[in-house]
Simulated scan of single mutants.
Amino acid sequence: MNLELTVEDDRWQGLETLSRKAISAVLAFAEIDPEFCEVSVLGCDDARIAELNSEFRGKPSATNVLSWPAEDLAPDLPGQVPNAPQPDFTGEIPLGDIAISFETSAREAAEAGKAMDDHVIHLLVHGTLHLLGYDHIRDPDATLMEGIEVKILGKLGIDDPYRV
């Protein structure tokens, strides 16, 4: 996998390893060869992710993770599996960009009593699924996406993040 990692916040230790683990698990689930995939990950702080959230989503507040798919793979009907990404003219499969905020991730992990690494992997799995066209706006899509997240995380030995 071609992983372009940018770390703007020095508190992000081990982000490359966590990114590779999460993204590879999603690609394995989707039966996509990671050797041909390109993903960019930005490890930032709340101030930076708030800027991005404001600029791209019109929400001037911090969030945990944001994703920008290289192409729209969303299915036409709710609850359907998205279209598979296709290689570009170079043979690479550009999937897109993910940004993740340290403060929000750390706060959420602490509040939920979860290990930071497990929560970060969950957020990166979530973000990567967005790159593959999954979403959670419509209920059938949310059910599908959350179910896939739980399966992938389970294979990584991480508990269901949606179980209360």
Rank of each mutant, 00 (worst) to 15 (best):
R20N: 02
E92G: 01
T128W: 00
E16C: 12
L129N: 02
L73A: 04
S19G: 03
G43A: 00
D10I: 05
N83W: 05
L5W: 04
E51L: 12
K59H: 13
G127I: 04
N64S: 09
L42C: 07
L95I: 05
I137Y: 13
I98G: 01
H122A: 14
P69L: 07
N53M: 04
A84M: 11
D33M: 07
A30C: 14
E8V: 07
I23W: 00
V120Y: 02
L18I: 15
D76Y: 03
L27Y: 12
N64W: 11
I121F: 01
P34V: 07
D88V: 03
S101Y: 00
K59P: 06
D33S: 05
E4S: 09
E35T: 11
M1F: 08
A74Y: 00
Q13S: 10
E16M: 06
L129E: 00
A22S: 09
D45Y: 04
G91V: 15
C37F: 09
F56L: 11
E55G: 03
H126E: 14
D118N: 11
L66A: 09
D88T: 01
M145E: 02
I137W: 12
E4L: 05
L42A: 13
D139G: 06
E111V: 15
M1A: 10
G58T: 08
A50I: 11
A142I: 04
T17Q: 06
P94Y: 08
F29S: 14
N64V: 14
E35D: 13
G14A: 10
M145R: 02
R20T: 02
A112K: 09
E38M: 09
A22L: 09
A28S: 12
D45E: 13
I121S: 02
E38T: 08
G91L: 12
G133M: 12
N2T: 05
T17N: 04
F36V: 12
C37S: 14
I93W: 05
P85H: 03
D72N: 15
E92A: 09
V41C: 06
R138L: 09
R20K: 08
P87Y: 10
E71S: 07
K21T: 09
E8A: 07
L73D: 03
I100Y: 05
D72Q: 10
N2M: 04
L3Q: 01
H126C: 03
V125E: 03
P69F: 07
G43Q: 00
S54G: 15
E31L: 14
W68F: 08
D72C: 12
L144P: 00
T90N: 11
E8C: 07
L3T: 01
D72F: 14
P140L: 00
R48W: 13
I49W: 01
W68Q: 09
D135P: 02
E111N: 14
I137L: 05
G43M: 01
A142V: 06
V26M: 02
A70C: 11
E35R: 12
W68R: 10
A99N: 02
